[in-house]
Simulated scan of single mutants.
Amino acid sequence: MGKLFGGRIEPECLYCAFGRPGRDGIMILCQKHGVVAPHYSCWKFSYDPLKRVPKKARRLPQFSPEDFKL
């Protein structure tokens, strides 16, 4: 597994090179096992870092000039 998203990536079909999203957007179409759940994994798992979707950035709080006065 790569260090791109940490030292240990849990195997999931969602990130596998053999899987792709189904039409419903939930299930994964696996080349090896057919339709599977996104968090399923098998011994053929091959990590594809390009399938990872980064988490959305948190929204920063809004500050006013009064917040910086002593």
Rank of each mutant, 00 (worst) to 15 (best):
1 M>N: 01
2 G>F: 10
3 K>F: 09
4 L>Q: 14
5 F>K: 01
5 F>Y: 02
6 G>K: 11
7 G>E: 13
7 G>V: 07
7 G>I: 08
7 G>R: 08
8 R>G: 02
9 I>W: 05
11 P>K: 06
11 P>S: 11
11 P>G: 07
11 P>N: 11
11 P>Y: 07
12 E>G: 01
12 E>Y: 07
14 L>C: 00
15 Y>L: 14
15 Y>I: 02
15 Y>S: 04
16 C>Y: 01
16 C>S: 06
16 C>N: 05
18 F>K: 03
18 F>G: 07
18 F>V: 07
19 G>T: 13
19 G>K: 01
19 G>I: 03
19 G>C: 14
20 R>M: 10
21 P>E: 11
21 P>D: 07
21 P>K: 05
22 G>N: 06
22 G>R: 08
23 R>H: 04
24 D>P: 04
24 D>K: 04
24 D>A: 13
24 D>V: 01
25 G>T: 08
26 I>F: 14
26 I>K: 04
26 I>E: 13
28 I>H: 00
28 I>D: 00
29 L>W: 03
29 L>S: 09
30 C>N: 03
30 C>V: 04
32 K>H: 04
32 K>G: 12
34 G>M: 14
35 V>M: 15
35 V>R: 13
37 A>I: 11
38 P>L: 06
38 P>E: 08
39 H>M: 11
41 S>H: 08
41 S>P: 07
42 C>E: 02
42 C>D: 04
43 W>R: 15
43 W>M: 15
43 W>T: 11
43 W>F: 14
44 K>W: 03
45 F>S: 01
46 S>T: 09
46 S>P: 02
49 P>F: 04
49 P>N: 09
49 P>E: 05
49 P>Y: 06
50 L>T: 11
50 L>M: 09
50 L>N: 10
50 L>D: 13
51 K>W: 00
51 K>E: 00
52 R>Y: 14
52 R>F: 14
53 V>D: 06
53 V>I: 14
54 P>A: 00
55 K>H: 15
56 K>L: 11
57 A>R: 15
58 R>I: 09
58 R>F: 12
60 L>G: 14
60 L>H: 09
61 P>T: 05
61 P>I: 04
62 Q>R: 15
62 Q>L: 15
62 Q>Y: 13
62 Q>K: 15
63 F>A: 12
64 S>I: 02
64 S>A: 11
64 S>Q: 05
65 P>D: 07
65 P>F: 00
65 P>W: 01
67 D>Y: 12
67 D>V: 01
67 D>C: 06
67 D>K: 01
67 D>H: 05
68 F>L: 13
68 F>C: 09
68 F>E: 05
68 F>S: 00
68 F>D: 04
68 F>P: 00
68 F>R: 11
68 F>M: 09
68 F>Q: 11
69 K>D: 10
70 L>P: 15
